[in-house]
């Protein structure tokens, strides 16, 4: 096995776990992007200059820089993460990559993956991918052609979008219309989806306003709040109300 592939298998899960512990499990996609990016940088740099004396230290150094850059740069930091971090953590943005924190993070990741709310098939898939570094060939290929990974993700979103475009032509339903608009946001961006969502006018449907709130989150949080509030006033079950309250709390 190539040294970098071996490192991928042993280090990827640690990096993802630490990033998720730090950013929150909801940001797993971002954690994966940062981790993939780091291995891509490693493949490029080591291919040219040769392997460094301490590859793990190299990886941790780069992941730390990328994480800091991400936190500084990205809106999500302002909107979502910052409120969940304590003052102290904001002032010392270094990632804690100590062995103790890596072990803690991986344990936390295990519990997160095995949460009963995640379907069993998805638990297995997540565990194999994130904890075991399974599918090493595909993943190794993927971080060498990182663009393709992103394209595949987009392709999936577009497939779902079609499913709904066609479904709606055959049989309209408000739920399908909302799902279609959500898929549109994934495939073509939130701005486009907002324009289409506002034409739906499902004004007695709480999920319509929840969707609008979601779409506006990070773009116009004031509008997001107004929509979530409307959704809250339409929600009937305690559970629905709690979910919406949580979204408002995160704004």
């Amino acid at each position: 096995m190539q040294p970098i592939q071996h490192l991928f298998r042993t280090e990827y899960r640690k990096i993802i776990s630490v990033l998720c512990k730090r950013f929150g499990f909801a940001q797993i996609k971002i954690a994966e992007d940062i981790a993939s990016d780091t291995f891509l940088a490693a493949a490029q740099s080591w291919g040219l200059k040769g392997m460094p004396a301490n590859p793990v230290a190299w990886l941790y150094h780069v992941i730390n820089n990328k994480a800091i850059n991400y936190l500084k740069r990205h809106q999500v930091f302002e909107n979502k993460v910052v409120k969940e971090l304590s003052e102290e953590e904001i002032n010392t943005p270094e990632l804690d990559l100590s062995p103790q924190n890596i072990i803690d993070s991986q344990l936390q990741m295990m519990f997160a993956i095995c949460h009963p709310s995640i379907p069993v098939e998805a638990q297995v898939g997540l565990a194999l991918r994130i904890l075991c570094g399974f599918g090493i060939e595909e993943i190794a290929d993927a971080f060498l052609t990182n663009k393709e990974t992103i394209n595949k993700r987009l392709y999936r979103a577009e497939n779902i979008l079609q499913l709904y475009n066609r479904l709606l032509q055959i049989q309209y339903s408000p739920v399908a219309a909302l799902n279609r608009t959500y898929a549109l946001a994934k495939a073509n961006g939130k701005q486009k989806a907002i324009a289409e969502a506002e034409k739906l006018r499902l004004n007695d449907n709480q999920f319509y306003f929840t969707l609008l709130g979601e779409l506006y989150t990070g773009i116009d949080n004031q509008k997001a709040k107004i929509h979530f509030d409307t959704a809250l006033s339409l929600a009937k079950t305690q559970n629905d109300k709690q979910v919406i309250q949580k979204k408002i709390g995160k704004l």
């Binding site: 079609q162 709904y164 709606l168 032509q169 309209y172 289409e196 034409k199």
Partner: peptide
Amino acid sequence: MKQTMDWIGGIAAQNKYVTG
């Protein structure tokens, strides 16, 4: 074709599409 499907999907999502 994809753009057309997205366009028609947007009309269908408003329950305003009949056939085509």
